[in-house]
Nucleic acid binder design. Structure first.
Lengths: 170, 170
DNA sequence: AGCGTATAGTTTGACGCCCAACTAAATGCC
DNA sequence: GGCATTTAGTTGGGCGTCAAACTATACGCT
């Protein structure tokens, strides 16, 4: 160890680098304009939140990506895969393997429609409902953690802004 | 088309579904608890912002992921790959192909250290600086768009909260 | 009825990411 | 000096994602 290691990730603002002879060194990194930009911080926050939820949901043996999918099916029984993928913000092709897996594991059911034999309709099975209940508990715990970080005062406004970003840039 | 299609993505809040006989249908989707949860909205916002920047940066023929990497090298000349990956919030192994590509295209330079022959030090080349300048212009445009959506009044606080989430959950 | 167009879902290929295992080099301890 | 431990970076496997091409159904117009 030569003194160039041991990066601290703690200081949220890009810390000053303490260049000796023009070289950059550890212990703090200059984030430059990244520190003030929304895009970068949005990515870092999302990543951190996702990781945290991922750990929680892994405790009950479910992948975090399944959660939004199951919730949306539960709230919109009979939803089609395309509608689902739009609501979930993913390409419809990404949904194919997910749906396959959920069907195989008996968490959801797909039915062909009579009137339009192209579309499927998706429904939660009772075992899917059980899993969703557990995942939801998990998510609530996660949300409580986030709420503590954000603070009750700013929470509503914060979510409003997130929604606005998703809507206006979509 | 049977009336079950044409999902509207516009209404940010999970709209009411208009179930006829218990079936869910298009035109609006019930997001249930997802609508109020930070995690979901964080993901949607990040995805939207990323997509938007991706389109902008593709106009100048660069992948959006390169941007933070180049900026961090520019601000911290001689940074090591591990430091870089930490600052950037990615696994160090993800950096290997990126660095390879950037070196091959002449945007950065790697030098072995004499004192510790395991670590590389990364530097921007002059052509790398040119590319970064273009990318930065691009990013500023992107940020202006985001600022318009967020509003100048909330911007500072918003970024503060994002930073706090990344720091506290990291 | 028939043909062109639109739509639902799948397939394929590429990419970026993580994690775990690995190699090479440095450090610490005896 | 020698050997266990730590560290920097790479490799390989797997996963989730997108975009484009594809299949099949449905719709509209004449």
């Amino acid at each position: 160890m030569h003194g160039t290691n041991g990066l601290s990730r703690t200081n949220g603002l890009g810390g000053r680098r303490r260049g000796r002879n023009g070289e950059a060194i550890g212990l703090s990194v200059d984030f430059g304009p990244l520190a003030h930009w929304v895009g970068f911080n949005l990515r870092m926050a999302q990543e951190a939140a996702f990781q945290a939820f991922s750990h929680l949901s892994q405790e009950i043996g479910e992948s975090p990506g399944r959660f939004a999918t199951l919730t949306l099916i539960a709230r919109n029984p009979g939803i089609s895969q395309t509608e689902l993928s739009l609501a979930n913000g993913r390409d419809k092709s990404s949904l194919t393997p997910v749906v396959e897996d959920l069907v195989k594991r008996g968490l959801i059911e797909r039915k062909r429609m009579d009137s339009d034999r192209r579309t499927y309709r998706l429904y939660l099975t009772s075992s899917g409902k059980k899993v969703l209940t557990m995942l939801t508990r998990c998510a609530r715990r996660h949300e409580r953690n986030l709420d503590r970080v954000i603070g009750e005062r700013d929470r509503k406004r914060f979510i409003q802004i997130l929604k606005k970003i998703a809507a206006d840039l979509g």
